[in-house]
Write a protein that binds this DNA or RNA. Structure first.
Lengths: 110, 110
DNA sequence: TGTAGTGTGTAGTAGATACTACACAGATGG
DNA sequence: CCATCTGTGTAGTATCTACTACACACTACA
């Protein structure tokens, strides 16, 4: 995350830690610690703002923060049994197999 | 949950609120409040013990507690992008469609 | 009629979470 | 040389989470 920000900063001073912190609405010192992993991860809201600013995938950044988005949790909680089974089954499946399922569903092959 | 316990209690006094609370390792007054939804849901550990005692599906009970098991969260966090896509796509799919995927994976059709 | 069980209400709390506030030291440019 | 930028260290804190402790009122039964 730090690397990502520094890369952007090289091209645009708007990505200094302080400026970014302001846009994300946290204290610079806090962001500094978060970037270096000294502080526990921020809330989902702040992580999302960070992802947006840095052009990163929110789900990935949330995962780095040790979280799963509230939205995905809601999806699972609506039908805990089916989704629990599905996830446990797919835990060891390769990425491409999972993505194949996604495509099949998307293309309406049901 | 209360209904479930009371059903079991009718057949076996070991399922009184107090006895059950003791086995689950919480205070009876706390369990009472949880059963009536007056108190925020207990920790995953207690919910699991409750599920075991009541013969309920842990994932379902966790869902009622507004939670998703740490195990499932880990699975998602390992590969946030694929699983996020998958879950969002399957959110509106009918149960049988999801279970079909589970069976296909299980039967090794990959 | 006491004692052993039942569920419940009130009050308090240790520890975690998610931060803020502010001071400080070093680099840079006018 | 000082004003302004940079990142960082220390300290403190409000809010939430997940409970415990204990007293109370009721019922049953011996």
């Amino acid at each position: 995350m730090r690397a990502r920000r520094e890369a952007l900063q090289a091209a645009d001073p708007e990505f200094s830690l302080r400026r970014l912190a302001q846009r994300v609405r946290v204290e610079p010192s806090y962001l500094s610690k978060v970037e270096r992993g000294l502080e526990a991860a921020p809330s989902e809201e702040k992580v999302r703002r960070l992802a947006e600013e840095l052009g990163e995938n929110p789900d990935v950044l949330l995962a780095l923060a040790g979280k799963v988005s509230a939205e995905l949790q809601r999806i699972i909680r609506r039908r805990p049994q089916v989704f629990a089974e599905l996830l446990r089954e797919l835990d060891e499946a390769p990425d491409h197999a999972i993505l194949r399922v996604v495509r099949e569903v998307r293309d309406g092959e049901w």
